[in-house]
Design a protein around this nucleic acid. Sequence first.
RNA 1: GGCGCGAUAGCAAAGCGGUUAUGCCACGGAUUGCAAAUCCGUUGAGGCCGGUUCGACUCCGGCUCGCGCCUCCA
Length: 463
Amino acid sequence: MTLYLHNTLTQQKEPFAPLDPNRVTMYVCGPTVYNFVHIGNARPVVVFDTLFRLLNRHFPNVIYARNITDIDDKINNAAKENGEPIRVLAERYADAYHQDMGQLNNLQPTLEPYATDNIDAMIEQIQALIKNGHAYEAEGHVLFQVSTDKQYGKLSKRNMDDMIAGARVEVAPYKKEPADFVLWKPSSDDLPGWDSPWGRGRPGWHIECSAMINKHLGKTIDIHGGGMDLIFPHHENEIAQGTCCHEHGNEQFVRYWLHNGYLNIDGKKMSKSLGNFRTVRDLLQEWPGEVIRYALLTAHYRKPLDFSGDLLSSAKSALDRLYGALRESAVTVDSGVQHPQLDELEGYLLDDLNTPQALSVLHALAGEINKTTGAEKAKLQSILRKAGSFIGLLNQDAEAWFKWAPASSSGGLSDDAIEQLIQERIDAKKAKNFVRADAIRKELKDQGIVLEDSKEGTRWTRE
RNA sequence: GGCGCGAUAGCAAAGCGGUUAUGCCACGGAUUGCAAAUCCGUUGAGGCCGGUUCGACUCCGGCUCGCGCCUCCA
């Protein structure tokens, strides 16, 4: 089976084959750690985590790198406001990021380079760009001269003239040409800075990714991912830096460019600048992380996804159905099990990560599980567990899932109190005191606890 | 102005030139002391106008509406 991926460069689905069949390289733009990430930031993480899982199933050695941007003017500003060192602030939000992404069942990438650990690589790349005639120094800045790169614009499909005509930014006086962008900028004494051939300063935004890719993954990588809003200018500039820094300037920098669509609120892009965002951290107070992940996977990754409370609540209901089929099943994934529907599911994922269709296979399996019993049921349950693991879902105990309580409802009934009432109800039922039994059912229902009687006894779930 | 994306049932969201997507919700039935869960079933679709075709939600053209990038942004 062949993996097909939509490549932004060609705007087509292409069969994927790594440059080196024994080593797949993937780089995804990570967060700038100056704040809690919002749910829109989580989309690419979940999308590329799903791709990482898929690649791991098909290739022996997948190197997945996702950076942490821990030097940036937004960080500087936030640290100044808080009156704390940037490193402290950056570390705090990097930790929070790891926690939040872990809650969404994202695997840790193979490598997680920090910008501040790679300043030397950036300086080296900038020096190479100057040497090759693609960059120049001006007033303590180093700028990339866009006109020297004949392929500039090939990713975002725009040409220089249009860009200059539509430019809405004031052109800095030290720029030779309006489209030139900063590789290095000077730092005043109160700002973080590093010694460089051009004086004490700090890197521009785009250089870290191309420098770290070169250093940690190589001259040419297979896959580079990120949100669509990074296509221009960030990724376009990365291509310019990552190719022009080499002698011939014609090596391919990235072979497959992948971009996920936006997460919208009321039809409009969620973004920090618009202020219409919800942080993952806040959402995790109200919903299990798995619900958030499921919600993000309900739409194809290149399509816009409108985010809402309804989306989460139907994701929750859908997961209830899946976990309902997994009651009394082992949590472990048996990697040896095989089933035609696993192949079907894999086929959908191999087709440019069609997660909505992949989810439909999980539901088909759940339906079959609910119709069978005994060994056949147990087998299908292990198939469903494995299917879930393909996309990072269904990795917890079913009873734990149904008993999950939001952190925001700390005043609710404890598990013990619930069990006690259930016992009281069982006694009442034995005594044929159905009035009392129903009163207890109602009392619990009012607190969001639903009881289910079955041959095996009574179990409960939180709504 | 340049470049790009989208429009599917109450909601969300896929595939597909002719045959049930799927999930949530709603309704009916089975089951249940009552419920819940589950199963069975039902309703309901493809922005508008043309074209191609034996046949189009699916291909082509136009229109309308919505959105995005061109500035920090996933």
